[in-house]
């Protein structure tokens, strides 16, 4: 029982990382209506911008992390302006946009590996002696991950429900042409969406790196399928769905480690992805016209 609770605690940490990354992907998926296969590279950007800001510019870690988050958001906006937006404006079907983002992931991941090397890196605060909290045991970094995730998700909730930008995003996610017809500046909303999506990817990447302790260029890309699992389980564009999906898959991935080798984490996430597609392809929280 104590092992179960201990693992449950780690599951909450994984779910927190997953929720940050999934909400970012789901938000962009909902607003622009195509999936970004290069998202794993955005996680890597978050990790390595933070790493460089921390080690080369000697910024304190949390300030470096903030730099990493904002810089990843900006990179996402730039990539959208330079590559994706022109294709969308030309009316390229979603079909070919997927191939473009797939190619983009190859380009970005290899560029990241060429710049920052193939070896494993580590954030200074990632390792640390565990703190016992009742039946649970976390490192300080893991506790920070949970706190950051909760704060960020609350902020996302407020953004989407209380601000004009958030309402515009939800409107575009529901019906882009109606949103445009009602006078929403869809171009501006799309750019903000990419910024927020990229920032959340960056934050997801940083927290993932803190949780796995060691990271390299492809760490985020391997995690991408777990993110897809959470997004599809939750329902595309449904950010609350993505949170629920992240919680379910995050807990399942860790708890399955009690029974089978943790080398099969990805397979557990895949089983959920398949079950979601077979039983409820529209996701736990259905989005009309998106399945």
């Amino acid at each position: 029982m104590s092992l179960f609770l201990l693992t449950l605690g780690f599951g909450v940490v994984t779910a927190s990382v997953l929720a940050l990354a999934s909400v970012g992907l789901s938000l962009q998926f909902g607003v622009t209506n195509y999936v970004n296969f290069a998202y794993g590279a955005y996680l890597a950007f978050g990790m390595f911008f933070t790493y460089t800001a921390n080690t080369a510019l000697h910024l304190p870690f949390w300030l470096a992390a903030a730099v990493g988050v904002v810089a990843t958001g900006l990179v996402a906006v730039l990539i959208n302006i330079a590559i994706l937006e022109p294709f969308v404006r030309r009316g390229t079907s979603g079909f070919f946009l997927l191939i473009v983002t797939f190619g983009l992931s190859l380009v970005l991941l290899n560029a990241i590996q060429a710049i920052w090397g193939v070896g494993f890196d580590q954030f200074p605060i990632a390792a640390g002696s565990p703190i016992r909290l009742g039946p649970f045991s976390f490192t300080a970094a893991q506790l920070a991950i949970v706190v950051i995730a909760v704060m960020t998700l609350v902020a996302m909730h407020l953004l989407l429900t209380r601000t004009a930008l958030g309402r515009a995003m939800r409107a575009m996610s529901d019906n882009p042409s109606l949103a445009r017809a009602s006078g929403i500046d869809t171009h501006r909303v799309t750019l903000w969406t990419w910024f927020i999506s990229g920032s959340l990817a960056g934050l997801g990447g940083i927290t993932l790196a803190l949780n796995t302790v060691e990271f390299q260029a492809f760490t985020g890309n391997t995690f991408l399928f777990v993110i897809f699992g959470a997004v599809i389980l939750g329902g595309i564009g449904q950010i609350y769905g993505a949170m629920v999906g992240a919680l379910i898959i995050g807990l399942a991935v860790n708890l399955s480690g009690l029974v089978i080798s943790s080398a099969y984490d990805l397979d557990v996430a895949f089983v959920f992805l398949v079950l979601a597609l077979l039983l409820r392809p529209q996701g736990l929280i259905a989005a009309r016209g998106k399945a």
Binding site: F37, F225, A291
Partner: peptide, 12 residues
């Protein structure tokens, strides 16, 4: 399913 799902499933 929509083609995004198909692509995700094959890749996964």
């Amino acid at each position: 399913l929509r083609s995004d799902y198909l692509a995700i499933v094959t890749l996964a």
